[in-house]
């Protein structure tokens, strides 16, 4: 089986898990939801295997490189990272609840990567600009940051739906803050490694390329989230709305900037 097939299959496993989680929640069947969770874990394992296999396939072709070099590979890794952050960061009752939101998002990324006719899923060699040790660490940290921001937004949705005026330290507020903080650390490292790389490759660590500018916008918005939270002492509606703006900015940083002229056109 090729890596592409494996990754395509995970799309349906994730969709199945999503359906079971939804039905389990609507009919209040905890066991169905827990089974869906196990299915999601299995899908994640298969996705991990798919990424490792793709890595090996590239070496078998004699052009070995980490599978993080084009739009297809970044979508698959984004999906992987989003599931990883959910599994690693959330325990207890909130887990299945969050997974109900994460599974369709992760499946959408995989499905778009695997089945959209506009996306080339073939393994290509690296162009000279991407042949760098900074590629892996830069892409991994950026996407772990994006993934944490997505999970933070899910907690933001929970808080808004249940009335964010909950005073004191609500566990969802704590989780929201932690996800933003972890995302902020990862994304900061992503920007820092990216600028070191740009310094080596292009001779400038910051050049106001649209991708760079939008990464800064995203970073600033989440910085605003953190400062607004300190200012009001808790996660208010305004903090959550700022984080939603941050998530829109993440999407634009990832996909939107490709419609603006710039140097990051390969991803």
């Amino acid at each position: 089986m090729t890596s592409g097939t494996m990754i395509g299959i995970v799309t349906f496993i994730y969709l199945g898990a999503f359906s079971c989680l939804l039905v389990g929640r609507l009919l209040d069947k905890k066991r169905l939801a827990n089974a869906a969770f196990l299915g999601a874990v299995g899908g994640f394992a298969l996705l991990t295997a798919g990424l490792v296999l793709r890595w090996r396939e590239s070496y078998a072709m004699g052009i070995g490189h980490v599978p993080l070099s084009n739009f297809y590979e970044s979508l698959v890794f984004f999906s992987w990272a989003t599931t990883l952050i959910t599994f690693a960061g959330i325990r207890g009752e909130a887990r299945n609840r969050v997974l109900t939101f994460i599974m369709p998002a992760a499946a959408l990324m995989l499905g778009y990567a695997s089945f959209s006719p506009g996306i080339d899923s073939s393994i290509q060699p690296l162009i000279p600009a991407l042949k760098s040790n900074w590629l892996a660490i830069h892409v991994i940290t950026c996407f772990l940051g994006y993934a944490s921001f997505i999970v933070a937004s899910v907690f933001g949705i929970f808080m808004l739906r249940n009335g964010h005026t909950l005073s004191g330290r609500h566990p969802w507020g704590e989780m929201f803050y932690r996800c933003v903080m972890i995302g902020f650390v990862f994304f900061t490292v992503g920007i820092l490694t990216g600028s070191v790389w740009a310094h080596v490759a292009w001779g400038r660590y910051w050049g106001w390329d649209p991708k760079e500018t939008w990464a800064l916008i995203t970073w600033l918005l989440y910085a605003a989230v953190l400062h607004e939270r300190v200012r009001s002492g808790r996660v208010t509606g305004r903090v959550i709305m700022l984080s939603f703006a941050g998530l829109l900015s993440v999407l634009f940083t990832y996909i939107g900037v490709n419609y603006l002229p710039g140097l990051h056109s390969y991803l």
């Binding site: 649209p210 500018t213 939008w214 918005l221 605003a224």
Partner: peptide, 15 residues
């Protein structure tokens, strides 16, 4: 917060 958001808006225009 106001300055951060203002700079973010300028960045949007600049991009």
């Amino acid at each position: 917060v106001a300055l951060i958001l203002f700079i973010a808006v300028l960045c949007v225009v600049g991009s």
